[in-house]
Each structure stands twice: as structure tokens, then as C-alpha cells.
Design a protein around this nucleic acid. Structure first.
Lengths: 397, 397
DNA sequence: TTGTTTTAGTAAGGTAACGTTACTAACAAT
DNA sequence: ATTGTTAGTAACGTTACCTTACTAAAACAA
């Protein structure tokens, strides 16, 4: 009845150490003797476990000719088989949706972009349809899935809130919807949170920056935080709703001014139109788009400079709050507005006047794929947790 | 050469499970059969480990008469021995210093309050002197120590910064200083952080509120955050420096107004004096202290109400930022100003106008001892990590 | 060519720590 | 006194580890 502790635990621990070592060494291969050295396990133990893992298909002998030139018997070099597991990842945006399939190492072996559709339900239906088609060439179901959604995800209620750009989330329980229609564990996560995780893996593969924030500035403004290498979601899952940040205490009966009212893409264009109406000089059309406005600001356009000053100032104030409260080591700006270096430079300039020793501010390098990369990161972690028990546990039945 | 994995690990894991069960059951005692049931270990395993632990002095048979009235053979009830380990805790304040010694369960068996002294070095010297005296009645050195300091502690440099109320920290490496003069691991931590942890253990002994903030408002303003049950320190250790939070974007060449300029105890008194100078009605002396001002505000004093409105409004703005960024489930206010219910009520009122679904705001119940209680919590965790290996590891030599 | 050195891997044996089974111990209820 | 129930122990077998001692396969030197 028991068999809890003694029988398999130690074996799983040892197996995990071997797999960890192999992941750490990747893409280098390792001999069993080498694994024994780095893990501290004995050679016979390693050999026994490796043989089981090889039978289970998790590892294989590298076909490459064992590297010559070194002394002693040449080693049989082992490597993890990238295709033993795969995961489904997706980023559901307001108009487009990115879907990908990742292998054991997080490489996206397939990727597709489709229209989101009119509402949340149609988006998730299309997601299932397209992904099942994409998964047809694999002979096993995905180990897990991670889906980014454009709103706050409340785990407890399984609902997405404040997805202003994509209607229909009120009547959809995304986790239940997907779990009913596919195999494997399902993770739902806010897209900005995933983008933060994506940028983190981009910046430091070994994740040395462990306290880290990513601000996405586009139609709306969102903030994702990584704390100690893990996503931070807050008490109710709504951490990072930085778009609603008040720029100052509103006067009684006055309409409060939020960050989004000054620094989102639509607000920037509106401010630019107003600046020209107010008589400021400009060579641009009053309905110019944000990249054009920022470019003009760089080359001395008065109206554009006024707008950039206002926008970047407000964002710098918000970042100063973020720094004093959460003290991230680095802030990455993403989204249509945020990834613009002109914008980031302006924010940095303002921030330096507001606080001492500001963190590094950098524009995103991943662009639209940041959330997808973050989703891969979540999937990979989820996979790592179950991989060894699945491989070695089945061995014992 | 190896002996890493196989020999002791499983034994330690099992021992840890037993000890965890005993801690969870405390103050109830447990029979070996009961431990076997809750841990999933077999009865012989539990018996063997318990016998070792009893020899090591960690557990003992409760002297109480085994509870009668139940069926079957009466159990020998075991309990943890509270005195096997003890820890030193202290909260170094600007003028006073609290020192305590805690047992295995976090009960403070001794507690003393002494003067801090002129500077940091004298404070730490007194801390060592007094604590060694207090520890004389114990026959073993403390397992670890946790010391709260009134400033930002930078782990990497082993320095305390911004301890404005206690000079002399520039030339003191507190961790090295203490490690040189006492046995056991030493933890240095910001006092507001510890207060947050203290309030958390107060509110929920089982720590169900895992995302949690404590704001201390007194001479200065500080913020401590607990994320997922753990202290959050930020990238460089300076998270929570909320006193420097700007209330609005400063105009060019204007002096920026920070939260501390409006909501700290000295600022409140200054604002009150100014309000009277400006001709506002008041029954109070212009140099009244903060409790008097708040009390007067409650009973309709005009000048006092103006000040409270301004102070609480600024604090509410800061809390709104905190909520949008970090989304804590609860915020506890401590310190001379913060623990005043009049203040907390006023902040809550303002906050409800600023954001939807604000978190619970409550005044601190621990008062000045919050940081000490938090220090106990840190010590206990540190002790838990090493307890079982120490007890069972020695057995094998 | 032949031995020596070096490293990889395997076989055999011993040990730690677990669980299972089967027992005894001690009490309450009948 | 007998029966039932629960606590605890003894004996045994199993798992999975490490250690030691071996063989395998190559480079290198004589």
C-alpha cells in the first residue's frame, strides 16, 4: 500500500541529476563517465539509469564519430533526443495569433500565424483546429501547452478579464476549454507576463538577471515581472496593470489621468494632433503614426518633441515607481511604441533625473514573438518537472 | 570518495518528513503510528528514525499520561524538544534595540531592550555583549541569528545604506562583524522587511496570504513585501524604498515632492503648523504631535483635517501604485503614524476612489515588536533547513 | 611490433534504508 | 475471560546505491 518513499524516489532523484547534467551540457554530448564525474553518482549507477533512459527513448548515443585525439578508450557520447517530447505554444493577440510547436530544447520546429477571429471563442476554436493539424505529424500528444492571452488571467475563476481588444472572454473558461479538447497540461498566462519571460531567456540564457521587468507599450500598456527567475502574478493575478497608474493625485471631481492616457499609441497620436492644433510647428501630418512622430522628434520637429517629452516623462515617472517598489535589475520595453529606441532613450533621460542609479533600460529585441518565446519557457519548465518521473516511472510497471 | 547520493539522502528525506509532520502537529503530540499514517512512511522506518532522533535529543516521549478513553493499545506520544536549538534575534532601531532568544518553535524565551548607542559600531558591540550574556544560560551556541537593521542591506557588499537615523554604517560590515564574534549563521535584514514578515505570521499562522505588503510610516516611510511567502528584496536589495516615491512629475527645475515630504511624522507636524499659519481653525497647539493631530481630525478640527486629507491622499496614491504594480492581497500599516486607525481609515477612503477592488488595509497589531517577530520567522526557516541533517547526519559518523 | 598509460565502461559484491508481513503488547468493551 | 482494536517490533526481502576490481579500447613510447 505504501511504496511511497523507498522504492523509487532515490532512483528518480538520480535520474533527474543525470538529465539536468545533460540539459546543462547541451548541445555538447556527454559520456557516462563524464556524467558520473559531474553528478557525483557512481559509474555503475549512471550506466544502469542511462540504459533505462535509452530504452525509453530519452537519450541516445550520438552518431558522430567519437572525438579522437584524446587519451584512453574513446567514450560513447550520449545526448538527449530532442523529439521525445514536444509542447504546444501560442500567443493569442487581438487580430493575429502565433502558434508553435517546440521540441525538448525549446526550439520551435513549426510555427504558424493565423487570424484571431471575431471573439475569444472563435479564437480558441481556431487554435484547437490549427494546432491539431500541426500536431498530426507527431506520433504522440503534446506534453503540455502554454497559451498567452491579451488580458488578466484569474486562475481561481479560470477567466480572462480586461481583454479590451478581444471580446467574448466573459463566457469562456480558457483552461477548461482547452483541457477538454486536447491532451497534456494546459497553462494560460497573460501575454505581457510571457513577454517578460521571453525577454529574460533572450537576455541571459542562464538567467543571471533574476529580477526583471518588461513593459509593453502599444495600444495598451502592460507590465510583466520576473522575480527570482519566476513569473510574478500578484495576489489575485492582476499584478502589472500599470496602464491604469495615476500620474498624480486627481483633484476632487476631476477626471484622473492615467499612464495610458499619455503613453499608449492612440494617446500619443491624439496628443500630437492636439499639439499641432495648439499651434506648434511640425512638418508632419496631424494624423501621423507613432514611428513617424518619434522619428520627427529626433530630427527637431517641435510638436513631435513636445509629445515625446510628455510621453516619456510620464513613463519615466511610472518606471521610477516601479524601481522604488520592486527594484528590478533591468527593464525591457516592448510593443509597437516601447521597442522604439527613440522612446527608450527619452525615457532613460527623464528617469535619470528622477532617481539615483536607475536600472538598465533596453528596447525589446524579440518584437512580436516575445510572448511566444516566453510561452516556450513556461512549457519547458512544466515539461522538466514531469519528464524524469514519466520516463523512469513507467519502467517499473 | 562519492557517498553523495545513496547513503544518507533517503534517510534525511524521511527524517525531514517526520520532523515536518511534528512541526505541523505542534502543539499536539503524535504517536509513531500516527506519524507513519500522515507521512506515508512505514511504521518500522518511523520507529527507527524516531529512536535516532530521541537519542539525539530532538524528540522525546511526552510525560503526559497517554490519553485514555480510546480503543486499542495506548500510544507513546512524541513531541519535539523546544530547547534543542535556539536562535538569537534582534531589531536594531535608531535609539533602542530589542534582543531576544527564541526556541525551536519561535517562542521568545528571553527578551531585553537596551539603548542603541551613538553609532552602528557601538550598537553592534552592545548587541554582542548583551547577547552573549543572555546566551550564558544556554549550554550550546545559537543555531543562527537574524538581525534587523534600519536601512537597506546590500548582501553583496555586506553594507547597510541609507540608515539615516543611525550613523556609522559606512565603515561597518555587519555580517562579517557578527560572524567573527559569534557562532551560527547570521542573517542581516532590513527592519521593514522583517516587520512585513512579522505581520504575516501574525495574520495567518499558516501563511495563506502569500502576497502581502507592510508599510511602515514613522520618521521615514518604508515598504516590505512578501511574495509567495518569501521576502522580496529586489534586484539590488533596495526594493520598497517607497519614501522617495514622487507624487507627481516635477516641473523643470522644481524641487520634486516625495511621499516622505507629505506623509512622514515630521512632515505631518510641519504641514499642521503651516495650515495654522495659513489661517485654518484649530484648537490645537501648532506644534502638536501626530496622534493629537489625527485625533483632532476625527473630531472636526479644520487644520488637522486638512493635513490628514493631504497625508492620506498621498499615501493612497502610493498604495494605488503598489497595487497596480505588485497586487498584494493585503497591506498592513505599521510605525508610529501607520498603526493609527484614523490614518488607515483615511487612506482606505482615498484609495477606494482611486482604484477598483482595493486590497484590505489594516493597522499593525504587533507595534514595535513586528520586526523582532519577523526576525524569529527568518531564524526559524534558517533553522529548519539545517536541523534534520545536523541531527541525523551526526548519527552516521 | 609490443608494451605502457590512460580513460571508458562492466561485473560482482557489499551496504543502507526502505517496505511488507507477521507478530506481540496493551488496553476497552462485552 | 474473551474479543476487538490500535501501537509498536522483529524478521525478511527488495531496491538502488557505492566500492572494488576487472575488461575494453585507444594513444603513445620503446
Amino acid at each position: 500500500m505504501n511504496e511511497a518513499s523507498g522504492s523509487g524516489v532515490l532512483r528518480l532523484l538520480s535520474g533527474q541529476r543525470i538529465v539536468d547534467a545533460l540539459f546543462a551540457a547541451h548541445p555538447q554530448q556527454m559520456s557516462r563517465a563524464g556524467i558520473a564525474r559531474t553528478t557525483g553518482l557512481s559509474k555503475p549507477t549512471v550506466s544502469a539509469l542511462m540504459s533505462d533512459m535509452e530504452n525509453a527513448g530519452l537519450v541516445r548515443v550520438a552518431t558522430e564519430s567519437p572525438k579522437l585525439g584524446s587519451l584512453g578508450r574513446p567514450a560513447a557520447l550520449y545526448e538527449l533526443v530532442p523529439t521525445v517530447r514536444h509542447t504546444l505554444v501560442a500567443d493569442v493577440g487581438a487580430t493575429k495569433m502565433l502558434i508553435g510547436i517546440s521540441d525538448l530544447f525549446g526550439n520551435l520546429v513549426t510555427e504558424r500565424e493565423i487570424e484571431t477571429g471575431a471573439d475569444a471563442r472563435s479564437a480558441f476554436t481556431r487554435l484547437i483546429d490549427t494546432s491539431t493539424e500541426m500536431l498530426r505529424s507527431f506520433d504522440s500528444p503534446p506534453s503540455c501547452a502554454c497559451i498567452g492571452v491579451p488580458g488578466i488571467y484569474r486562475r481561481a475563476q479560470d477567466r480572462v478579464e480586461q481583454a479590451l481588444n478581444l471580446p467574448g472572454f466573459d463566457e469562456l473558461a480558457p483552461h477548461a476549454f482547452l483541457t477538454d479538447r486536447m491532451e497534456g497540461r494546459v497553462h494560460i498566462e497573460n501575454d505581457v507576463n510571457l513577454a517578460a519571460l521571453g525577454e529574460l531567456t533572450q537576455i541571459s540564457a542562464d538567467q543571471t538577471d533574476r529580477d526583471f521587468a518588461a513593459i509593453s507599450v502599444g495600444t495598451g500598456i502592460g507590465l510583466g515581472m520576473v522575480v527570482g527567475g519566476d513569473l510574478y502574478r500578484g495576489g489575485t493575478g492582476s499584478a502589472g496593470e500599470v496602464g491604469s497608474l495615476l500620474l498624480s493625485l486627481p483633484a476632487p471631481n476631476a477626471v484622473p489621468v492615467t499612464l495610458e492616457d499619455v503613453a499608449s499609441a492612440p494617446s500619443i497620436r491624439k496628443l500630437f494632433g492636439q499639439a499641432i492644433e495648439d499651434g506648434q510647428r511640425s512638418n508632419l501630418d496631424p494624423s501621423a503614426d507613432v514611428p513617424a512622430i518619434f522619428q520627427a522628434a529626433k530630427t527637431g520637429d517641435q510638436a513631435a518633441q513636445t509629445v515625446l517629452h510628455k510621453t516619456a516623462g510620464a513613463m519615466a515617472l511610472a518606471v521610477s515607481h516601479l524601481c522604488l517598489i520592486a527594484d528590478p535589475e533591468r527593464v525591457v520595453f516592448g510593443g509597437g511604441v516601447g521597442s522604439n529606441p527613440v522612446f527608450v532613450d527619452a525615457v532613460r533621460q527623464h528617469l535619470e533625473e528622477l532617481i539615483d542609479s536607475p536600472p538598465e533600460l533596453t528596447p525589446s529585441t524579440l518584437g512580436r514573438r516575445a510572448a511566444l518565446v516566453g510561452a516556450v519557457s513556461v512549457s519547458l519548465r512544466s515539461m522538466h518537472e514531469t519528464l524524469v518521473p514519466e520516463i523512469l516511472g513507467d519502467q517499473r510497471r
